[in-house]
Simulated assay, not measured.
Amino acid sequence: MAGLPAFLLYFVVGSALITGFALVYMRLTAHDEIVLIRAGNLSAAIALGGNLAGFSIPLERAIAQASSIADCVLWALAAMLIQFAAYGLARVLIPDLSKKIQEDRLPSAAMLAVIAVISGTLAAASMTV
């Protein structure tokens, strides 16, 4: 139980970073994920879920290897930038991406999710101490 305070601290910081990522990501998109998901749009859920997973993977690595909270936050910010760049790439590769997600076109959402998870996995693997 000696590690419980550190666990709680990193858990709270990690949760805040995921929330921050989600809020910024949802501001970057041209569609409203929450409204679409509440309306039953599976594409919006897949796209958002893939991006959250794509960020959470390197965040896990950042928490595991961090020497301090500040170190963890810096790695997490780097991972966020990678995810935002991956979203930009997806928008180039998939014309009218937001429109397709609004129309609940699953292939576009699935491809966005795959790009996000691959980017997150690569970012996590690239993190070194």
Rank of each mutant, 00 (worst) to 15 (best):
Y10R: 12
S119F: 02
L112V: 01
E33G: 09
Y25H: 03
S56Q: 01
V92L: 14
D96P: 14
M26H: 07
I34P: 07
G40C: 04
A125E: 13
A30V: 09
K99D: 14
M80R: 10
S126I: 00
V92W: 15
R105D: 13
N41Q: 14
D71E: 01
P5K: 06
R105S: 11
T128Q: 08
S56R: 06
L81E: 10
V13E: 03
A30T: 04
Y10D: 00
D32C: 15
V117S: 01
M111D: 08
G3Y: 15
V114H: 14
L8D: 00
G3D: 15
M127E: 09
E60I: 14
S98M: 04
L93E: 07
S43Q: 15
I69K: 01
E33C: 05
A62T: 08
R38S: 11
L97R: 11
G54F: 13
V117D: 02
L93M: 09
A30D: 13
V24R: 12
A90M: 06
L4A: 12
A47E: 05
R61W: 01
I57T: 10
I69T: 03
N51R: 08
L59T: 04
I115N: 09
A125G: 05
Q83E: 04
F84E: 04
A16W: 01
L77C: 03
A116R: 05
R61S: 03
G54N: 06
T121A: 09
T19W: 00
F21T: 01
G88D: 12
V13K: 05
M111E: 14
A90K: 11
M1I: 11
S68P: 03
P95R: 12
N51E: 07
K99Y: 15
V35K: 15
V117P: 01
A79F: 14
M26Y: 04
M111P: 13
A39Y: 13
A123I: 11
I82C: 10
I18H: 04
A16M: 03
F7W: 02
I63M: 04
R105C: 12
H31W: 14
V24C: 06
Q83F: 10
P107Y: 09
N41V: 09
L42I: 11
A124P: 08
L8Y: 08
T19M: 00
Q83V: 02
N41W: 06
A125S: 13
L9R: 10
G49L: 06
A125Y: 11
F84C: 06
L77V: 05
F7H: 10
L52D: 00
M1S: 15
D96M: 10
T121H: 12
R61T: 04
M1P: 15
M26E: 12
V92G: 07
N51V: 00
Y10F: 12
L93C: 14
D104K: 13
S126M: 02
R27V: 12
H31G: 08
I57K: 04
I37M: 06
T19V: 00
S68H: 01
G49F: 09
Y10Q: 06
A86H: 10
V35W: 14
T29H: 07
A2E: 06
A76W: 05
G3N: 07
I118T: 13
M1D: 14
A90I: 08
V114T: 09
D71A: 07
S43C: 13
F21L: 03
A124Y: 10
A78R: 12
D71S: 09
A113F: 12
Q83H: 14
L89R: 08
Y25W: 04
I63R: 06
L42T: 15
S108T: 13
I101F: 03
